[in-house]
Amino acid sequence: MPEVIFNGPAGRIEGRYQPAAVRNAPIAMILHPHPEFGGTMNNQVAYRLFYMFKERGFAVLRFNFRGVGRSQGQFDHGSGELSDAASALDWVQSIHPEARFCWVAGFDFGAWIGMQLLMRRPEIEGFISIAPPANLNDFSFLAPCPSSGLIIHGDIDKVVPQKDVQALVDKLKAQKGIVIDHKIIEGANHFFDQKIDELIDHCGRYLDMRLAAQPSEG
């Protein structure tokens, strides 16, 4: 799993990149939790998501937002971090140009950034949004949400109450042309303590279902 450094809008961005074995394999981007509350690309959920996509043959990148780890710059309340994510996707596409499609998976703050990236980049065909902070951040930009995906969270999350995520899910499910899968993990808090295996299992099954539905290339 090579360490990588690439240029972003605020300077260098530090990441970890797993190349794909197949030249037209899809890309996955993993976005970490809130930088001001200890979120990094080495967060256990982000780390496990990285390997979940790797095991399915994706070219995978996880990276530190500006001001985290060895990434330059300072926290920018979402605007700069969205630019970081766009630059990161540009970087992966520059070294893996024949990718058939892209997925984005984010946890907490990373889920909010990932959903915004989804609106800007039509090549993103699917998303996994873990504990999206619907009570803390505005998700009204998803009008309409351009891709189908999975929203998953815990039922004892004290940071992002279940009712707020449910309201977001209900709003998205009312939109035509996409399918939102919604999973609540019983007994899981915001950080999925003791529940990360179950979380990743659900995400993996969802991803496998979506990949099986992809048209095969002749």
Score class of each variant (00 low, 15 high):
L118D: 03
L118H: 09
R120I: 14
R121E: 15
P122C: 05
I124H: 12
E125D: 09
E125S: 12
E125R: 15
G126I: 09
F127R: 14
S129V: 13
S129R: 03
I130Y: 13
I130Q: 06
I130K: 06
I130M: 06
A131R: 03
A131L: 01
A131F: 02
A131G: 04
N135G: 15
L136H: 10
N137R: 15
N137C: 09
D138G: 04
D138K: 02
D138N: 15
F139V: 07
S140I: 06
S140V: 05
A143H: 11
P144I: 07
P144A: 02
P146C: 12
P146V: 01
S147P: 07
S147M: 06
S148I: 11
G149F: 08
L150C: 00
I151P: 07
I152F: 09
I152G: 07
I152P: 03
H153K: 01
D155T: 01
D155F: 03
D155R: 04
I156W: 04
I156E: 01
I156C: 11
K158Q: 07
P161W: 03
Q162G: 10
Q162K: 14
K163Q: 11
D164V: 07
D164L: 11
D164N: 15
V165T: 06
A167P: 00
A167G: 01
K171W: 01
K171P: 00
L172T: 13
L172N: 07
L172S: 10
K173Y: 02
A174N: 10
A174I: 01
K176T: 12
K176W: 04
G177L: 14
I178N: 09
I180S: 08
I180N: 08
I180P: 05
D181R: 12
D181T: 13
D181I: 02
D181N: 13
I184D: 04
I184T: 14
I184W: 06
I184K: 12
I184L: 12
I185L: 15
I185H: 10
G187F: 13
G187T: 12
G187V: 06
A188M: 10
